[in-house]
Design a protein around this nucleic acid. Sequence first.
DNA 1: TTCTATTATGCAATTATGTGCATATGGTTT
DNA 2: AAACCATATGCACATAATTGCATAATAGAA
Lengths: 179, 179
Amino acid sequence: MALAEAILVCLTDRPMSGYDLAKTFDASIGFFWRASHQQVYRELARLREKGLVDSREIEQSGRPNRIIHTITNSGEDVVHAWSLKPCRMPSVKDELLVKLYALDTVDISVLREQLDIRLDQHRAKLSAYHRIKEKFYDGQNLTRAGKGKLIALTMGISNEGEMVKTLGTAITMLGEIDE
Amino acid sequence: MALAEAILVCLTDRPMSGYDLAKTFDASIGFFWRASHQQVYRELARLREKGLVDSREIEQSGRPNRIIHTITNSGEDVVHAWSLKPCRMPSVKDELLVKLYALDTVDISVLREQLDIRLDQHRAKLSAYHRIKEKFYDGQNLTRAGKGKLIALTMGISNEGEMVKTLGTAITMLGEIDE
DNA sequence: TTCTATTATGCAATTATGTGCATATGGTTT
DNA sequence: AAACCATATGCACATAATTGCATAATAGAA
């Protein structure tokens, strides 16, 4: 259960509402650990129960009240303990690769379209990462936190770039079959 | 639920026991879709219930009887329908990247060790993939199924190679902090 | 001789994730 | 005026994955 830790990590930076967190998980930290808003709210309820966050409701007029969550001391202890534990390998689960693996049971032109779609998705991610890097992490006086995010982003960029290249190769190889 | 489809795809090739399938998921198809033996046995029970596989017990002396599972016609229909559906993007969930993202809450030397471990894991995968490619897919007269597996393997190799490179960069960048 | 690995199957409990739905309001677009 | 988007929260149901346990025989190593 590292969603808990990912949320706590976000709250280390600053106290946030569930809505803020959900948006963060749609962007920044979501590049490395994806979660929906429902998941975030459910996990926040658990963290509150365990006393790892402190939640206070803020009155608002016009729109629903916000609930601001602040990390507690025991929350920080949990983050620290987690940081020392070894990391798991992310588990691979890619339907596209399974379809390539099972090439004699699938239609090549359909699969080709699916590869094209995937290629576009990786291109989109790549340019999004580039924009973020230029906007926030190209200055030279970065904090330690900023440097860490830059390293993660750099890995993301080279990952996506590589995916774009490999998918191109795969599409070419697929095109050379049955022609 | 694409574990069902991954199992059916394996059974398209040849009928297999749960044990055989579990081993296949520890290697070959497991490179693209990971599953434990418990998961495989449970899913096989479901597939049997739905009539997508046909299961017959084979008597053995000395050791437990094997149950051989064969894909049925409706099982093949399910695989075909699945092959036409668009593929999902694999969901990113990587603790190591979250730790980099949260660099000011983690100890750099501990994180460095974790990066080293990850680097070794990717190197191991890379050389395993290379061995398999040389052994099974370097000949020129491949079947269509073989060509598909070669494309998937090629993508795996370039993925792992890229991870090895990027982790090297990340370790260097991490080393340049606080020195 | 004890311990471990391999073959072969699976249940039970827990934890995690995904999908659909529900509510409430103010501002902007058509 | 109606439709839609952003803000803000969350429940309920369903599916999937992890972890620990359980059984049972044989072969080979320590």
